[in-house]
Structures are given as structure tokens and as C-alpha cells.
Amino acid sequence: MSEQQDWEEQDSSEFIELGEYFVPERQVQMDVVTSLIPEPQNPAEFLDLCCGQGRLSEALLKAFPQATVVGLDLSRTMLDTARRELSAYESRFRTEQFDLAGKDWRTRDEAPAAVVSSLAIHHLDGDGKRELFRDVFAMLRPGGVLVIADLIQPVGERGVALARRMWNEAVKAQSLVGTGGTEPYEKFHALEWSCYEYPDDLDKPSPLFDQLGWLRDAGFSEVDLYWMKAGHAVYGGVKPGE
């Protein structure tokens, strides 16, 4: 079974509606991701793995006028929304339906200058993450970067408790700022969104230190953690240049 098949179109609709409240400091995370991508010296292609409604893709398109972005996702709802919301970028943005765990999309006609992903890699188990990192390293152009914004697994119960509490606090605060009430926060719990509070088979976050090691093993240099809050982290590395 695909690593993503337990994700349903209703999940996509709920995330499109509520993602602004459910993701801690979503704009900050996108700003961090875009800041870690070198300015291309010529036209370049970026891949956004599991692009969702296209928020990170749009941030890339705004930050890098020479770049085109390919948004990949399994969900038809997500892809339709991304195409509609980013239609003003015309040929600079296109979509592909894919399975993150599949292999067919990992061979590209053009080597991407950057591969990014937000809240998707944690759907792969440890072996799947290691394989993905190796395959992304192989497809990137020299000097290209992989930047991931995702959930990580704390290694002890104290870390899990802290991530759970901080995620709850972030969602409640963002709900109050965005709506003046707690309805999005209540939906966060009704939908059992937090894997630290409601573990399920869909979410398979791995410890951060393991993932940094897998990135180094794949060949990446400058492997680092760039930002972290409430169990959400931005990390990645660079493919050395020729």
C-alpha cells in the first residue's frame, strides 16, 4: 500500500481550510525554506513534494523570478486548488500527481536546483526516508539543495510531552488571533490532528538526529537544522558542486 493512501480527499479539504491554524508559524517556516535556496544564476526548476494548496510553491515563485516550480501531490483536491490559486504564474507553475513513496517521479528530464517539502516526509518510514534522500541527492544538480519542513519524533517522553504542549499552545494562539475564538483549536482536537497526542499509522516521524545522519549518508554537505518549534523542524543539506 502507498504510504499516502490513508490520506483522503476530506483530509485535504480540512487542511486547506484549517492549515493556517494547525501549522505553527507557517509563514516563518516558508520564509526559512526560501532563505536557504541559493539564487539561481540561470533559469531553474524547483520541485515541491506534496505541494498541497500551493502555499510554499507560491513563496518560491515570488522569491525566485527566474524559477519554475513543479508542485507534486497525490490529492486531486490539493492539485486543483494549487492550479487555481497560482494560475497567475502561468507556465512558471505546473503540477504532477504522484505518490511520494513511488519511484517513477524520481527521474527527471531536468535536474532541479532545489527540492522542498512541507509536512509530507513524515508519512514515510525510516527506510523510505533514507531511500528518498538518496534519490533526491541523485536527481539534484550540483549545488542544489534539499530543504524539508516537517514533523520529527522526539526521542524521549519529555520531548514528546513538550512537543504536544507547544503544538496545542501554538494552535490555540493562532486560532484566537485569526478568528477571535477557539473553533479551529477545537477542530484540531476533534480531527485528532496531532500525532503526539493521537498517534496513527499515517504519521511516521523519525528522530531528527537520525534524519540528519541519513542526509549525510546520502552525500549531502552542510547538513543542518535551521528552525524548530513544537515538534516541527526545518532541516536539509546541499549537494556539493562540481
Rank of each mutant, 00 (worst) to 15 (best):
50 C>A: 15
115 V>Y: 10
85 E>P: 01
128 G>M: 02
86 L>S: 08
48 D>E: 10
115 V>L: 09
110 E>W: 03
54 G>W: 13
62 K>G: 02
91 S>V: 03
45 E>N: 15
113 A>C: 08
86 L>M: 05
111 A>Q: 14
57 S>C: 06
75 S>Y: 03
99 D>P: 00
123 H>T: 08
77 T>E: 05
84 R>Q: 09
128 G>H: 04
48 D>W: 02
76 R>Q: 10
39 E>G: 00
121 I>F: 08
72 L>R: 14
62 K>C: 05
64 F>V: 05
56 L>T: 03
117 S>F: 01
49 L>I: 13
50 C>K: 03
121 I>G: 00
117 S>Y: 07
93 F>N: 04
83 R>H: 09
112 P>S: 05
69 V>A: 12
104 D>Y: 11
130 R>M: 04
51 C>N: 14
87 S>D: 09
73 D>Y: 00
127 D>S: 15
40 P>M: 10
47 L>G: 01
72 L>K: 09
79 L>V: 12
56 L>I: 04
100 L>Q: 00
85 E>S: 13
55 R>Q: 11
102 G>S: 15
60 L>I: 13
42 N>R: 15
102 G>P: 01
91 S>D: 09
108 R>M: 14
83 R>K: 12
75 S>W: 05
116 V>W: 06
55 R>V: 05
84 R>A: 09
123 H>A: 07
123 H>G: 10
103 K>H: 04
117 S>M: 10
103 K>V: 12
88 A>G: 09
122 H>L: 11
114 A>E: 03
44 A>L: 04
61 L>S: 12
112 P>K: 02
51 C>G: 13
89 Y>A: 12
115 V>A: 04
53 Q>T: 00
87 S>E: 08
74 L>Y: 01
73 D>H: 02
107 T>K: 14
36 L>N: 03
60 L>Q: 14
45 E>R: 14
50 C>L: 09
66 Q>W: 06
42 N>I: 11
70 V>D: 01
95 T>H: 04
104 D>K: 11
101 A>M: 10
